[in-house]
Computed example of a mutant assay.
Amino acid sequence: MFEVIGLNATSEVIYRTICERPAWGVAQLANHLGLPEARVRADLDHLAELHLVTCKSEAGPIKVVDPGIALRSLLLQRETDLINRQRELDAARAAINTLASELSHKEAGESERLDSLVAVRARLRELAASVRESCWSLLPGGPQSSDALESSRPLDKGALDRGISLRTIYQSSCRNDTATRAYVEWLASRGGENRTLPTLPLPLVIVDEKVALVPIDVKESRRGAMSLSSPGAVAVARVLFELLWDTATPWGEHRLDADGLTTQERELLRLLSNGMTDEAAGRALGISLRSVRRLAAALMVKLNARSRFEAGVRATQNKWL
């Protein structure tokens, strides 16, 4: 429950036990919870770093800081961090969209126009063969086909075998796809790093922080891509990726924010509040219309609302929007 403010499951159990048994020391906590004393001490150090408890000496009593103050302070700090991160992310999205719309004005030698998906795939194969350090990718649009995943396997294997850093951000909807799950688990077993976000602004590939592939038309990626090598253009693409990476959820984790919402629920709430239809929201999230309506119904339950209008009012009152 308290993962969002920095507590893992064990730390939370220890903290709750200390609140209930303030006179207990490390040995009593360890015996009661069936944990090694070293683990209890490590978690107490972490609780102290979060200013939830204080302990003047190892043998002295453990003092709990007023939970009403300490926990709310941590929650406020987390909310502030999320607001600042969202502002940075919005600014980066605006910058990359501006960059994509101005590609035609790039100087010769700093960009290469790839006018078809065939040309894009050929360029990706060239980059995969020449990559020396890293390859970072954004993959919007939901799950890829099994054939597409299998065609990527030898390229990814070769890169990982050479010690290349592979980082990929998928849409959250990919977690429900059997083929993608199996492929990501295979990547992870070889050292690949994978995270998810509910929506992604555009397809993007960055190789060695020197070349960036972005779509010619953000709304229609089938038109092809631009291969950019100017330091400024690649820097903007890199900043966007790093902001998204820091915000994304590691594959296999299911984070809840301060309001108990998943990132996918939060994004759906934002899309619907902006007037987007269920169908359009589904396309943005890479999920089916049925899944959109299921998530919307779950949000109404969390908001204790009997209609979407009432849900919108309650979400505003709760400062979820």
Rank of each mutant, 00 (worst) to 15 (best):
residue 90 D to A: 08
residue 92 A to P: 04
residue 92 A to D: 13
residue 93 R to A: 07
residue 93 R to S: 08
residue 93 R to P: 02
residue 95 A to M: 08
residue 96 I to P: 02
residue 96 I to D: 11
residue 97 N to R: 13
residue 99 L to M: 15
residue 102 E to G: 15
residue 104 S to G: 14
residue 105 H to F: 15
residue 106 K to E: 14
residue 106 K to I: 14
residue 107 E to Q: 11
residue 108 A to V: 15
residue 108 A to K: 15
residue 111 S to R: 13
residue 112 E to L: 15
residue 112 E to K: 13
residue 112 E to A: 09
residue 113 R to T: 15
residue 114 L to D: 02
residue 116 S to F: 10
residue 117 L to H: 07
residue 119 A to M: 13
residue 126 E to G: 06
residue 127 L to V: 13
residue 131 V to M: 09
residue 137 S to I: 12
residue 139 L to V: 08
residue 140 P to N: 06
residue 141 G to T: 08
residue 141 G to Q: 05
residue 141 G to S: 04
residue 142 G to W: 09
residue 142 G to T: 04
residue 145 S to E: 08
residue 146 S to F: 01
residue 149 L to Q: 01
residue 150 E to D: 01
residue 151 S to R: 13
residue 152 S to F: 05
residue 152 S to A: 11
residue 154 P to S: 00
residue 154 P to Y: 07
residue 157 K to H: 03
residue 157 K to S: 10
residue 160 L to Y: 03
residue 162 R to F: 01
residue 162 R to P: 12
residue 162 R to S: 08
residue 165 S to E: 15
residue 166 L to H: 04
residue 167 R to M: 04
residue 171 Q to D: 04
residue 172 S to E: 14
residue 172 S to A: 15
residue 173 S to L: 00
residue 173 S to I: 00
residue 173 S to D: 08
residue 175 R to G: 01
residue 175 R to A: 03
residue 177 D to A: 00
residue 178 T to R: 11
residue 184 V to T: 14
residue 186 W to E: 10
residue 191 G to S: 12
residue 193 E to Q: 15
residue 194 N to L: 06
residue 195 R to N: 10
residue 197 L to M: 15
residue 198 P to G: 02
residue 200 L to V: 05
residue 202 L to S: 12
residue 202 L to I: 07
residue 203 P to T: 10
residue 205 V to M: 07
residue 206 I to Q: 08
residue 208 D to Q: 06
residue 209 E to D: 14
residue 211 V to C: 11
residue 212 A to G: 05
residue 212 A to K: 01
residue 214 V to E: 06
residue 216 I to A: 06
residue 217 D to L: 08
residue 218 V to K: 02
residue 218 V to G: 02
residue 221 S to C: 00
residue 222 R to D: 08
residue 222 R to F: 07
residue 226 M to C: 04
residue 228 L to G: 05
residue 228 L to K: 00
residue 228 L to V: 01
residue 228 L to T: 02
residue 230 S to T: 01
residue 233 A to C: 04
residue 234 V to T: 00
residue 235 A to R: 11
